[in-house]
């Protein structure tokens, strides 16, 4: 059974059809990239998968369950987590507490009126583990807004991982990064998404081709081509639609 399945996703915004029937399947443990020229509907598709809004028609199945109209928090509890293109952390709060928010959510310690998260050794250890994974173990007490940009992106990744998801949705994880930062980020993403399903939306072709097991090209609201990186690289239609005109 695929971990995620999109069936005939349509979305129109007051008459403007952005997605016109998107279908794909994602196997457990697979890294899947969605690329496409600007305005192809990538962000809309991403938002529909993550629950920011619902599709006009069509269904999203996650682990066999129809989640098309489920709010984001329920999707997260089923084991799905997303990152944000524009860093979306808890600015005034320490790095450690940023990640702890997700770690304790995973354990169901969300709105308890008596239990204190910082008394739970297991949660603290798990949080430190994640900080280690994203390389922020030396910044655990720093307020998030004092971090450098690259570190904030790492924290963004840490928060996304904090709920121990089975499926990770990454929205342009290397946006705005220098070449060196991008390389580090790719290494990190490869490491932390090991054996997890992952969907990446990305502009940077190098990132896409070095990370993805499989690539879909979205063009004018439909999937134009879908296949292994090599197949996509050699696909004439894709070249015409995308790589030919805008090879960033």
């Amino acid at each position: 059974m695929p971990i995620l399945e999109a069936k005939g996703i349509h979305k129109d915004f007051s008459g403007l059809e952005v997605l016109t029937g998107v279908d794909f399947q994602l196997a457990a443990g697979e890294r899947f990239a969605i690329i496409g020229p600007n305005g192809a509907g990538k962000t809309t598709l991403f938002n529909i998968l993550s629950g920011a809004f619902s599709p006009t028609r069509g269904n999203v199945l996650f682990k066999g369950e129809d989640i098309s109209r489920k709010p984001p928090h329920l999707r997260n509890r089923l084991g799905m987590s997303r990152s944000f293109q524009i860093t979306n952390v808890f600015k005034e709060i320490s790095v450690f507490d940023n990640v702890l928010a997700g770690v304790r959510s995973r354990e169901g310690l969300r709105c308890h009126y008596l239990r204190r998260p910082f008394k739970n050794r297991g949660l603290l250890e798990r949080t430190d583990e994640i900080l280690m994974q994203v390389g922020l173990e030396n910044e655990r007490d720093t307020p998030a807004h004092e971090l450098a940009y690259g570190q904030q992106r790492a924290l963004e990744m840490g928060i996304t991982l904090s709920t121990a998801p089975d499926l990770i949705l990454l929205d342009e994880p290397t946006a705005g990064m220098s070449r060196q930062e991008t390389e580090d980020a790719v290494q990190m993403i490869r490491r932390v998404t090991e054996s997890k399903a992952c969907i990446i939306i990305e502009h940077d072709m190098n990132v896409v081709f070095s990370l993805a097991d499989r690539i879909s090209v979205l063009h004018y609201g439909v999937i134009l081509a879908c296949g292994l990186p090599e197949e996509i690289r050699n696909d004439q239609r894709v070249k015409d639609a995308y790589l030919g005109q805008d090879n960033q």
Binding site: S50, V89, F90, G102, R106, R110, I159, S162
Partner: peptide, 9 residues
């Protein structure tokens, strides 16, 4: 917004 995507109602 972020809290919603971390499983909080």
């Amino acid at each position: 917004d972020r809290m919603r995507f971390l499983g909080y109602n």
